[in-house]
């Protein structure tokens, strides 16, 4: 069965006819060609598909596209203007917080949400805060450092 949905993605309004069963991650990747959001598992464990939905980090692989009707979505492609870095992107670059890059968009989206809710987290809070996102390459030390750097930068910006 097809449903008409309208939502805002990275600031642009989109209307589409989608199947009831279409997953949001497939809508984003296949229908909208925004391939920065990745698929790493089918069980909501790895977090490679994490996006911001109405400002909150959501795993788009276990979210139906129809359910996103009327919402506002931000993907990795939409967190900053082309050619510039969001403080979180800059921090991942500076601290070597990525290797293969596959988990990176999801990890960045989750970390942005983490700092929204807890602007000055401890190392422990960061580790728990990103524990819904798996990285197989980095051993997490430098991801933690990246989030710490971004927290400092964002706090400076907000002053």
């Amino acid at each position: 069965m097809k449903h008409k949905i309208t939502l805002k993605i990275n600031g642009e309004s989109v209307t589409a006819e989608v199947d009831s069963r279409l997953l949001l991650v497939h809508f984003i990747r296949e229908n909208l060609d925004l391939t920065g959001t990745h698929i790493g598992c089918d069980t909501s464990n790895c977090g490679a598909c994490t996006i911001l939905l109405d400002g909150k980090s959501v795993k788009s692989c276990t979210y139906l596209a129809v359910r996103a009707d009327g919402s506002e979505i931000t993907t990795i492609e939409g967190i900053t203007a082309e050619g510039t870095n969001h403080p979180m992107q800059q921090a991942f670059h500076d601290q070597h917080g990525l290797h293969c890059g596959f988990c990176t968009p999801g990890m960045i989206m989750r970390s942005i949400d983490l700092l929204e809710n807890n602007p000055n987290p401890t190392e422990e809070e960061i580790r728990w805060g990103i524990s819904g996102n798996l990285c197989r390459c980095t051993g997490y030390n430098n991801i933690v450092k990246s989030v710490q750097q971004a927290a400092e930068e964002l706090q400076k910006e907000s002053v």
Binding site: T35, G36, F92, C100, G101, F102, T104
Partner: peptide, 16 residues
């Protein structure tokens, strides 16, 4: 790393 930019911006090109 020189390769970081595309991964940080969701512009990596994986098989899928």
């Amino acid at each position: 790393r020189k390769e970081d930019a595309r991964f940080l911006h969701g512009k990596g090109n994986y098989v899928d």
